[in-house]
Design a protein around this nucleic acid. Structure first.
Lengths: 320, 320
DNA sequence: ATCTCGCATAGATAATTATCTATATATAGA
DNA sequence: TCTATATATAGATAATTATCTATGCGAGAT
């Protein structure tokens, strides 16, 4: 028996012949000509190395080997039908897994999308990676995840991006700070203030620094802190000023004031980023589709900026 | 998912890749080059319509679909291994079925071969058809059976034959018959005797008649009887003479004498006949092989005439 | 005896597969 | 940064497959 060239198609033809009990009938059902089926049978028989059937006034009669092959063929095609069903579920995005990598700040927002998604698609396994901008960027380079969320997207030709949420950066000060009472604050007012900022490379810091550069000024005292939480608490307790995403602020933020800084808030956006050179799992595509239609209901509409629909269209084109 | 061109070979390659965890290693094990395997994987992935694996520092990592395909592939190849085992049994002639068609007379002899064979190969299903020469000939024409046993083989170019047993035809008379006491009987002595014979077309009758023709004589009174048994009993009870196979006579045959007829016994042989245009089931080949080596021990050696060995050789050649 | 039906064979062709060698690319280690 | 190892891609080719049309052939039916 030589399985080398045995195809599922051949088994399908054989099964049809046995079921219909006639070569011609099988040919019709399969939209083939009779000689084609005849020849397939011959080839199958050669593959198996045994005669499979002979003709007996009208109907066909299976040999021992033929009967056994029929059983095996049914088992095998049935098994692959199951597999097909499974794939269909995968393909519908209803099942499977994908991973998403977030920059730190985004973890204040993304759960409001991921939560409802997981409820709607309980069969999808989801991995969330969180790191600072540098770490997520590296994951992106190494193609470790399916979807990435950046505030300041890497401008690589390998990526496709969609903005989905405005991310205004505000300047915060302790309630008791002199500037807190002002109706308006100018850049010159803050030059001597101590600032608590995330590490260099963090999007928030990069944006703030480039804003400062645009204003032609430079800060004197900067204190680096690794976490947004820590910064918030530190500012509240009077250690200095900071620039943070408005989403990081709780609705009520005791001890903190948002300064009416001129030129603020700095406008930035969160983006979904996917690699264009890698095909996304259907589950990930399913997530993006879910996002496209559920953004407004999951997040404060006034911040929403839904470009995900367009991203999905582009991805659908890329699939071809 | 398109199964049309999915071969078992492809699954085998895939399984090997997953098992070894490396494309190159799989290639070596399969005696292929690395690009070949690489390309096969690609094609398989296209067939399935999903990415199956990606590479992850050193090893490979399966996707959801890949994992499921691996399971399906194992099931399926395993199922066909079973089928292969079954075929091997069939192929060894240890299992399966075949049918053999006998002319009436042969049923006195063939059980002595079929019995031991069935004991030795209990998994082989055997169908024995019995009829007169005409009926068996017809079955032969219609290719209904695998092996045929004739006394006088049909001289068709589609057949291959092997003699296996001498079949002397003797002339029998009632014990009390005047000729029974004679030391020698001449053809002229029997011209007026009444003969009990099988129907025209029966081999025994044909041979006897052609013998008579050779002697230039013709019989007057012929009484036709359909069964050898009936003839034997009828002769013993004095109804006339007959010519029958010596094998039809019991070792002790009360009431009957074999006449010392000049020119008798008529020599004939039993033959195994198979069609040359039809491939025999292995079980049938197995039977013929069994016969070739067991003839002498199953049947009286003095009658044996073993040409079955040569027949088997010819059949083995035909198989190519 | 002739016709029809179902199947097999022959011959043809386009597509697909199997497989190679040579080369590019990427990742990990020195 | 250079090298070695593992994969992927490209290009080529022989074999195999899929499929057709046309035709032969045997068995029942008329």
């Amino acid at each position: 028996m030589n399985l080398r060239h045995l195809t599922f198609r051949l088994l399908e033809v054989y099964v049809t012949v046995v079921k219909t009990g006639s070569v011609t009938a099988a040919a019709q059902r399969l939209h083939l000509t009779q000689p084609t089926v005849s020849q397939q049978l011959k080839r199958l028989s050669e593959s198996v190395g045994e005669p499979l059937l002979h003709h007996d006034r009208g109907g066909i009669e299976l040999t021992e080997a033929g009967r056994e092959l029929y059983r095996a063929a049914l088992d095998v095609t049935g098994r692959f039908e199951d597999f097909g069903d499974y794939l269909a579920e995968l393909g519908g995005g209803r099942r499977g897994r994908f991973s998403i990598a977030l920059v730190n700040t985004a973890q204040y927002v993304l759960p409001r999308l991921l939560g409802p998604f997981s409820q709607a698609y309980p069969e999808v396994d989801l991995t969330v990676e969180i790191g600072n901008r540098q770490q997520v960027l590296e994951r992106f380079e190494r193609q470790l995840d399916d979807i990435y969320v950046f505030s300041h997207p890497p401008s690589l030709e390998h990526a496709a991006a969609a903005r989905f949420l405005r991310n205004p950066l505000v300047m915060v000060a302790p309630e008791s700070h002199p500037l807190a009472a002002r109706a308006s604050v100018h850049v010159n007012d803050i030059l001597t203030e101590r600032f608590l900022l995330r590490e260099p490379g963090s999007a928030t810091r990069m944006l703030f620094e480039s804003w400062l550069q645009g204003q032609g000024v430079q800060l004197s005292g900067v204190l680096q802190m690794a976490s947004n939480e820590a910064i918030r608490v530190a500012v509240a307790s009077g250690m200095g000023l900071s620039v943070i995403s408005r989403h990081v602020l709780p609705v009520a933020h005791p001890g903190l004031v948002v300064l009416p800084m001129q030129g603020f808030p700095i406008q930035s956006h969160w983006h979904f980023i996917v690699r264009r050179d890698r095909r996304l799992p259907h589950a990930a595509l399913g997530f993006l589709e879910f996002v496209a239609r559920s953004l407004e209901s999951c997040l404060p509409p006034e911040y929403v900026c839904n470009e995900v629909e367009q991203l999905n269209k582009r991805l659908a084109e890329l699939a071809h």
